[in-house]
Design a protein around this nucleic acid. Sequence first.
DNA 1: CATCAAAAACAAACATGATTGTTTCTTGAG
DNA 2: CTCAAGAAACAATCATGTTTGTTTTTGATG
Lengths: 223, 223
Amino acid sequence: MALAAVRSGSPARQPRERGQGGQTQQSLKSAQTRARLIDATIRCIVKVGYANTTTPQVAAEAGLSRGAMLHHFENGSALIKAAIVELHEKRLRAFRRAADTENHDVEALVRAYWRQVQKPAFVAFHELALAARTHADLAKILQPLQIEYRERFNAQAVALFPEWQGQRERFDLAMTLSQTMLEGMAINVLTGAMAEAMVEPMLALLEEQIRAMNPNVSKNQPG
Amino acid sequence: MALAAVRSGSPARQPRERGQGGQTQQSLKSAQTRARLIDATIRCIVKVGYANTTTPQVAAEAGLSRGAMLHHFENGSALIKAAIVELHEKRLRAFRRAADTENHDVEALVRAYWRQVQKPAFVAFHELALAARTHADLAKILQPLQIEYRERFNAQAVALFPEWQGQRERFDLAMTLSQTMLEGMAINVLTGAMAEAMVEPMLALLEEQIRAMNPNVSKNQPG
DNA sequence: CATCAAAAACAAACATGATTGTTTCTTGAG
DNA sequence: CTCAAGAAACAATCATGTTTGTTTTTGATG
């Protein structure tokens, strides 16, 4: 699935919209099918990797014929683009959800993000991010999303740790540290470059480090 | 270049060996050509990614015909295997070289490894490692090499930091921390997930952290 | 030492299989 | 009746492995 230029990120033939939420059964089924195709694409990327994700693969995974699939996405590229957007939103949703429900202490948040980077969505996104290195078209799509993700990440974190304000540099460093370590661990476990037994000690170390960086908490103070 | 089963990791037709270093001009040229092909493969992996590394690509990069290339490596898979072994040895060589020549203080070693993970060899290896996730054949080759690399990494590090012995767990943790952070940083910079401006502060933070973990050095003591 | 045949290096052509985008066709909703 | 959903067939492209052909070493022989 080579991802070339594609005119719009929409279906091959724009479905005729009904004014103000008047969903016809067709447009509803269309939306469902689109969602099924996007999910199938992500599942394929996780299962066989981005490089081996072919249009027949996705169609089979979605339980559709290739023809039907190309009716909804005029192009393989359009499908990939849609999958990327979906993945991005999925990551943002998971992030916001974690921030809403979890306790806002360091440990809970570290564990929450660790759980997140072990989900399929992270794997798929990394497949795409790495493929983008050698794929200008992909990179053009991913770059702004990466930036947005980083900004949201930081904005969310700022809201969770108001006491860090005033030392923005140190705060950004702590955020980058967390992201780098947790994502790096996830990838290294995935690729066998890191023994799984080291995960737990590393998480503890990260938590300790973050607490030590907090300017308003003196050393060894819990919480 | 799909990498399927292949009988041996050697040339299609074994060159007739001369007893004890009696190199004929042919066998010498053969070795050169083999090396050129392996280098071309690695360069291709870095340039266009593992997924898009095709046999015509490699042949063109090496300045040979595909026929000639398949004379030296009966299979595309054989070429990939050879490239993997070469990459592995390259990584080990670079590692040993750094350990021999650099100053053995924390900063010098951190910087040395940081330089290493920015080289093409690391990029190529990561491409392969990630591809191996969905490629059983590749994984079967890479897994033992990953383990050997980790072991060599640790063995070398033990030799460089004798004062850490006695606290082997803390030492292993420091090693894993370094590997995870530096490799994670390299990948995140590569994929645009991390701003390059954060590299320098992160390196400094890692150094600080490693020094703090050294059981024989009290806090804030330089060196 | 001159010649020659075998083997290796290298090149090119071929057949196969897979993927892609397009087009044509059927069916069901509006 | 019109259009969208879905399916199937088609031509084009490309990478792969195989096969065949050409040139250069090489070591054996006369």
